[in-house]
Design a protein around this nucleic acid. Structure first.
Lengths: 197, 197
DNA sequence: GTCTATAAACCGATAGAC
DNA sequence: GTCTATCGGTTTATAGAC
């Protein structure tokens, strides 16, 4: 496959993104200065502007690329399963992906209010698309009579919030392996919509 | 009851707290300047320092007072009920209290990383105390054989995260009345630990 | 109790040298 | 591709007048 001229990933450019993501996750967008990012990368502040037009765009690109990656990876998951299998798969996918990208998730979740209106709307469309995947699973399950759901929108928000909460306490090499966390949360999510209570 | 001299609540002091809470909730601690707070209160920036020694203490006091209020109000709830009743009551209390104080909850949740280490630890002790209430309910229910729980700590984190998620979308006079939200979430929480699945 | 003025440092972003 | 130097403006916090 031919490589588009000029699109080669620059080493410094990658490091800028990597460092910025880490610092934004740790201290928050507003609390991190371009000077701080530059010094962590190991360059002077002027150099950063070779890799991003401004600080806002740097934040937005990190968030947008993360959400694009989430959507892309979800589409790689198997389809056509039963509602129960699909919900189990969604929960496990969400946990696994988010645990593998804690900084990106944290930033994408916490820094929404620091986006311009236009950037927020772009990101919101992606977020709603993702939530729609879960909603469709819930609707399918309810229509087939295997899920008992009072309000699809509320239930999907509740499940996603439950899963996102993992980010506030998860540590690699923590008390429980990810597979075990996946299993317990999947069970809770399934039971919370279970028709046989 | 005698009033301690000098402890009368100053009108400006109250307004400073009120305005700061609102601005911190809306824009984030790091993005709100003391000048912005002052102008919203209607005073000059120097005046603020009559009511707080510094910006950090202003943030911490707001968060600490909120958590104290949460703990205090929980103790006013009835005790000695069955585990199922207690869990139902916890969920409804959490939702009701948090929906009534959205700004304080939002700030207490989002601005933890902007606290100094000492202030964070003080707040964390309160937070853990609150989580302990839920954990005790879950343990009681499990020991009595009415809840099926794989991991008490994980389950309590999952339930609290699910409830906290409400804050990201709740609007007064929204589609669903609070009582209805309480009912649906209480049902989901109970089912998620239900032994009869 | 509130003001003005100011200190000392930092901010995002740009221009132009090398 | 990275640097230095700089612009214009902001920050938290303090001192002292009224």
């Amino acid at each position: 496959m031919a490589r588009t001229k000029g699109s080669q990933a620059s080493l410094t450019g990658l490091k800028v993104k990597k460092v910025a993501l880490k610092l934004f996750a740790r201290y928050g967008f507003a609390a991190v200065s371009m000077r701080k990012i530059a010094s962590s990368v190991g360059v002077q502040v002027g150099t950063l502007y070779q890799y991003t037009p401004d600080k806002q765009t740097l934040l937005f690109d990190l968030m947008f690329n993360h959400m694009s990656s989430v959507l892309e990876n979800w589409h790689l998951e198997p389809h056509g399963l039963s509602p129960v299998e699909q919900l189990d798969r969604f929960v496990r996918f969400h946990i696994r992906f988010h645990v593998n990208h804690p900084d990106a998730v944290f930033v994408s979740y916490m820094e929404l209010r620091n986006l311009t209106v236009e950037n927020f709307n772009k990101l919101d469309r992606q977020r709603r698309k993702y939530e729609g995947f879960l909603e469709n699973i819930l609707i399918l399950g309810r229509d087939r009579g295997v899920f008992q759901i009072e309000d699809v929108r509320l239930t999907s928000m509740a499940i996603i919030a439950m899963l996102n909460g993992i980010l506030t306490w998860y540590k690699p090499n923590g008390r429980l392996p990810v597979k075990e966390i996946e299993r317990i949360y999947s069970e809770m999510a399934l039971k919370s919509v279970n028709i046989d209570q």
